[in-house]
Amino acid sequence: MSSARQTRARRSSPRAGAEAAHRGELLHAMLRIRRFEERCVELYSAAKIRGFVHLYIGEEAVAVGVTEALTPDDAVVSTYREHGHALARGLPAEAVMAEMYGRTTGCSGGRGGSMHLFDASRRFYGGNAIVAGGIPLAAGLALADRMRAAHRVTCCFFGDGAFAEGAFHETANLAALWGLPLLFVCENNRYAMGTALERHEAQTDLALRAASYGMVAWAVDGMDVEAVETAAHRAAEGIRAGAGPYFLELRTYRFRAHSMYDPDRYRDKAEIERWKAQDPIERLMGSMRERGELGDRALTRLEREVADEVDHAVETAEKAPEEPTETLLRHVTSATAEGS
């Protein structure tokens, strides 16, 4: 059989078709996050979104690849850069955008905003404005599952800056000591706010340091969604088999500044461009085109679908009600205190 015929045969096999369809789903999920975040830039600039906003542009492969390895029963604990995690976990774009607007239809009732997305029904236990603040909370969820003999994984996202916090090291030690079903996902984007990794860590191989706690740990190319998914599946399977906590250092990069307030003067522009050349979305598109899995029409259709979803999210958010001032103390003080 000629090489051309062999190639056509591989493409037409059921397995190849399923793999191609799955790559299409990964691309859709990453594009959805990217376009949502780009719209947030526009809305923030127009003063329709207020407060602090930390964008996930450039890191989409991490959220999408990791959540592919999780089940609906698993728990996710996030950081203040959590829009991508929330969308990948399945929170509706309308609920996330409404939360960005501070509207009552938001996933946190309009009270959390960008840094505090939350949805207990999807076991998404929120963003956390405190660096490393979610890590011990994730250990608590994992401990509860172990005590109940629940066959679950708790996935905790955090950045390289959180790795320097005592909360991580204390939690890593206890998680390994108690064999907790906890997946540590370190999004190493090389900057803790404005501080470069080599300026705040003597040993920059974070997976190596995590392994010193007696847990399985390895580093992964965080700009390759398929590599991330493969690693996350391996880790989740190990945790479900009772092997205790796992640690993934996902080496990634944020294309935007730390937050919308950040002038981003601490990074060399050439460095940013080098990382943009590894854009996870463009990499997957290129791979799919080489395999004959993505044509111009299909991409245009996908972009239109994502754009329509984001447009709808913005429209519904702008029409959603704000909370009346007389109920602002609800969930803040007790009913007795409110009535006194």
Rank of each mutant, 00 (worst) to 15 (best):
R23M: 13
L137V: 14
E229P: 00
G242P: 09
A236Y: 07
R148P: 12
R122S: 12
T154V: 04
T327E: 15
V41P: 06
E19N: 00
A21D: 14
R256M: 13
P263S: 02
G51Y: 12
P181G: 03
A93V: 03
F157Q: 04
V64A: 02
W275Y: 14
R32L: 14
E201M: 13
R122A: 10
A29C: 00
A236N: 01
P14R: 09
L180E: 10
P72Y: 11
G17H: 12
A307L: 07
D221Q: 01
R265C: 03
E59G: 00
I33S: 03
P245T: 01
V216H: 11
E271R: 08
R190K: 14
E201A: 11
L27D: 04
D296R: 05
F184V: 02
G106R: 06
Y261H: 13
L43R: 06
A149N: 15
R240P: 11
L43S: 07
H116V: 00
L180R: 04
T79D: 12
R10F: 14
A164D: 15
V153H: 07
F247G: 02
E315S: 09
I33T: 03
S287C: 02
R240E: 14
R265D: 15
K269P: 10
T154L: 11
E229D: 12
I281A: 05
A88N: 05
A217R: 06
A61C: 08
A144E: 10
F184N: 05
D296A: 13
S12I: 00
R146Y: 11
A217E: 11
F36V: 00
G134H: 08
A196R: 14
A142D: 10
L302M: 15
E303G: 00
I130Y: 08
S2M: 03
A227C: 06
R199G: 03
V53K: 01
M285K: 15
A20V: 04
A210F: 07
A202N: 10
I130Q: 06
W178K: 12
A210R: 03
A120K: 11
C155L: 08
F36H: 12
V53F: 11
C107E: 10
D296T: 09
A86D: 09
T195S: 09
H28K: 08
L26A: 02
L197N: 04
D221E: 10
W218L: 05
V185L: 07
R35I: 08
A277K: 06
R122Q: 15
L250W: 11
R103G: 08
A202R: 13
F118Q: 05
M115F: 12
A149H: 14
F247T: 02
M288G: 04
R15V: 07
F168P: 03
A4H: 07
N189T: 07
E229Y: 05
V332H: 09
M215L: 14
K319E: 15
R291V: 01
A129H: 09
R34P: 09
G84E: 13
K276A: 07
A144Y: 09
L180K: 04
G194F: 08
G106Y: 11
A142R: 04
E273A: 11
